[in-house]
Design a binder for these strands. Sequence first.
DNA 1: ATTATATGTTTTCACTGTAAAGATAGGGGA
DNA 2: TCCCCTATCTTTACAGTGAAAACATATAAT
Lengths: 204, 204
Amino acid sequence: MPNASQKPYHHGQLREQLLNAGELALGEMAIEQVTLREIARRAGVSHAAPKHHFPSLGHLLAEISARGYQRFVKALDEAATAAIDQQAGLTPDQQAETRLLAMGRAYLRFAESNAAAYQLMFGQRVNMVMTPNLIGASYSAWAQIVAAAGAVVGSNHAEAGALHAWSCVHGLATLKLAGRVPPDLPWHHIEEQTLQMMMKGIKP
Amino acid sequence: MPNASQKPYHHGQLREQLLNAGELALGEMAIEQVTLREIARRAGVSHAAPKHHFPSLGHLLAEISARGYQRFVKALDEAATAAIDQQAGLTPDQQAETRLLAMGRAYLRFAESNAAAYQLMFGQRVNMVMTPNLIGASYSAWAQIVAAAGAVVGSNHAEAGALHAWSCVHGLATLKLAGRVPPDLPWHHIEEQTLQMMMKGIKP
DNA sequence: ATTATATGTTTTCACTGTAAAGATAGGGGA
DNA sequence: TCCCCTATCTTTACAGTGAAAACATATAAT
């Protein structure tokens, strides 16, 4: 019978807690600092405990990354619907453009306010394992962008348009995160300009 | 007096050899495998020897990265001049566009055939130290792109245009390297389409 | 020739991910 | 009720890593 004043030997919710601890850590420290032992430390458990829930660090990170993709998809979707709800009386073409632009802004916002998670999702960490769950989550993000781009450029060029739109925002986001954007440029302005140029580039 | 049949205690060219070994390693293995000890191993020297030439791994990587930028600038410049030499009788505007497109193609080619070096240069490795030499080399790359983009969009919008052009090719390159480009898309075609959309987006 | 300095090696430390062996709790059947 | 089995957690160990300190040697300066 476990003494209530001390932590029980068996955690009970460790798998969930490890994922939460990992996401928390990603929000507070650089991605390279988010180690297996650090996550275990935050969950108040020995560094070998995670093994019983995740075969390796790569699998744990994959699950965290998959959750990141889910938050990502949700953020972009909410931003898109909010944008068209805000402006009534748009033609279908205008709606499509508004959606894509709103998603672009949400994309850049997500990358900035979830920097470490973003790098985990889109960077190439050697430990990462492409679990089915991660592949599925990442694919739904891709499908979401393809759909939004397809509504603008037509379904025959949906993938090419989506890839270009993604390249634009992803490139800008990673250049920003890597500190390669000259600090004298007004960032908010740059964001809007890039989105405008992206849109101008993909429109038929 | 050193016996000729065995290696001398003092290496003589260790600094140079370390940089070469590092670049060689970057060409053969994943970026995370390119460790201080691995580079020392390849140079045939103890793992503490580099300390006398580079204060830390970050400084060594910074120098390798700076050399990467120099090769990068050279590759883009050669591609640009080769492109305009090949087509005689172009208007200045056409020349500018031809140059920028050629640089874009060279950019993607560089990223693909120097994958690990490219990730070292543009990724965010925690160990990396922003040495003055690296800052200078990376700035000259930026200046080169600004000049080429400025010739197309006018000097007032040079930086915004350069940033967008860079975002497009950088985004596409990193998505490709991260395996996020659907394999069913014809890559060469995708490259050209992206460059066309990039150009269409930045043109006034 | 002797000393100083530059450039090596060896050793040590704190950290990492992974693996194996030991400890503990809870559940299922006798 | 008792016992064992299994899942989960801890401890320990090992091969890596980057960095630092102590030690060794060859070249250069005096």
